[in-house]
Design a protein around this nucleic acid. Structure first.
Lengths: 217, 217
DNA sequence: AATTAATTAAAACAACTGTTTAATACAATC
DNA sequence: GATTGTATTAAACAGTTGTTTTAATTAATT
């Protein structure tokens, strides 16, 4: 009997299915049996092709990151003729949409969110390939809004303020679903939230930056 | 041989230890054996006194909430002669300190955070006894800052903005630890972060509320 | 003191986990 | 065509989990 499943190889099928399962359950609660069952593959295949569940997970994180970069390129942010405010708006809208994307490949965000709030050994790698670069990007975006402010702590806290507002929709989604379901009922509602976060942050940053570094004339 | 352990009864010891263990591992990764071992109690005791692990967990959440209310009363917020800004400042500082408190009884925050980002059947109860009241309190605090603004969605998004900034320090602590450890190295650093969140939010809210509801004269 | 009920204890149960084994089938190479 | 290396399979292994059982012990009641 030949493979009736697909054109993919066994290891490819495992990798693709593993992204889904790890995103759904997290590393600890995901089971090798579930992965193999969904991939229509023998139980021993994970250990045969990937040595261990942990090693598979590490490869899944990297693969998923590359996929996300391929599908959600952020080159729109590189355009020179955008104001800093427009760029921040785009960044947040893009980020929030990725975070809330259930159907398609919002799986990458899910993987990362699970890893952050319940870290495994793979966190170190994840920081380097995914989180640090995105932090750097956001910092480059808000730097012109802040101005020539040099207080690093202030900049870092602003980064966390923006990130926190976005991640709230990921980590506390269960709560939002119960208390304010209208806010996330569809894509336009989510876009409205993104807009809110952007305006909220811009208003805060401009005013605080003024306070700390009073206008020199 | 009499009980050399303590004055507490067996079920009390289980309850107290269970708070620690569930806060440390979350419901799924906590084990009955670990709880019984730490409580110096026979393995069967959990099922004898609490029927099941799940039922114990539900009771732990309620007990922990009552303890937190007893130890961290928020009556300072009820004082009439505080400005709204001062009250928000107090609220955030109090909240953030609870979230970051590792040693003493920041266990309650840990329990809630774990439950929110990885919900079990107990989420419903938790919403009613802990989350909704705190949301209501925060709303009452920022309402005078917003003014007679009636757009409910705007108010709700502001609530989420503030909460998101605070919870960031809980859910993404692993990341902050690696990227910006100075921000949370001690209590005064954390207080500085609380101050930042308060100022950031007040600046944003006052300005946005003005924009939406222009000054009528 | 005898009987009853509540508590503690050790062991086993049944289900699940990641991993390994040993046997088979397949393909390519000499 | 026999041999070699690769791929797949079913089964078993060894460990952990929540829960139950059955017996021993303690406390309370009559």
């Amino acid at each position: 009997m030949t493979q009736t499943h697909s054109l993919e190889s066994v290891s490819e099928r495992i990798l693709h299915v593993a992204v889904e399962v790890f995103a759904e359950y997290g590393f600890r609660d995901a089971t090798v049996r579930e992965i193999c069952s969904r991939a229509n593959v023998n139980l021993a295949s994970v250990n045969y092709y990937f040595r261990s569940k942990e090693s598979l997970y590490a490869q899944v994180l990297i693969f998923s990151f590359q996929e996300a970069n391929r599908l959600h390129p952020q080159n729109a942010l590189l355009e020179k003729n955008l104001t800093p405010e427009q760029r921040l708006n785009l960044f947040i809208k893009n980020f929030l949409n990725k975070l809330m994307d259930d159907s398609r490949l919002g799986l990458h965000s899910k993987l990362i969110a699970k890893e952050i709030s319940d870290p495994t050994n793979a966190l170190e790698t994840l920081l380097e390939i995914a989180i640090k670069p995105q932090m750097k990007l956001l910092q480059d975006i808000i730097q012109p809004i802040i101005g020539e402010q040099t207080d690093k702590h202030f900049i870092h806290r602003c980064l966390l303020s923006i990130y926190g507002q976005c991640l709230m929709f990921k980590h506390s989604r269960s709560v939002i679903n119960r208390l304010y379901p209208e806010l996330i009922e569809n894509e336009s509602a989510i876009d409205a939230c993104a807009e809110h976060i952007a305006q909220f942050s811009i208003a805060a940053i401009t005013q605080l930056a003024q306070q700390i570094t009073p206008i020199k004339s």
